[in-house]
């Protein structure tokens, strides 16, 4: 049970939040090509190291925010509100 640093609630058990995965910028739906769109939908960097990812403070303040997490160690750092 890792601790996720919520910008409002302080460190919280990860079970109180939902991880929505690595941050992937959404292309402009009106102009995006199918291949750009499907890269957004499916392709992920999936690094073994630092990744920027989004969490939703589901049982707490209901804020979406991003943090950096090292997927090799589960160490977390930095945070900002989306």
């Amino acid at each position: 049970m890792i601790l996720v640093p919520c910008p409002n609630c302080g460190p919280r058990n990860s079970s109180d939040l939902r991880n929505t995965g690595e941050v992937v910028p959404r292309p402009d739906a009106a102009t995006a090509s199918l291949s750009e769109w499907r890269s957004y939908l499916y392709l992920r960097d999936n690094p073994a190291g630092w990744v920027t990812e989004t969490w939703y403070c589901r049982s707490g303040c209901r804020t979406y925010f991003t943090i950096e997490r090292n997927t090799a160690t589960n160490e977390v750092r930095g945070l900002e509100r989306t």
């Binding site: 589901r58 049982s59 707490g60």
Partner: peptide, 10 residues
Amino acid sequence: VFSGSVAKVT
């Protein structure tokens, strides 16, 4: 004032 899971209910 805080929120959390109590017996698995938010």
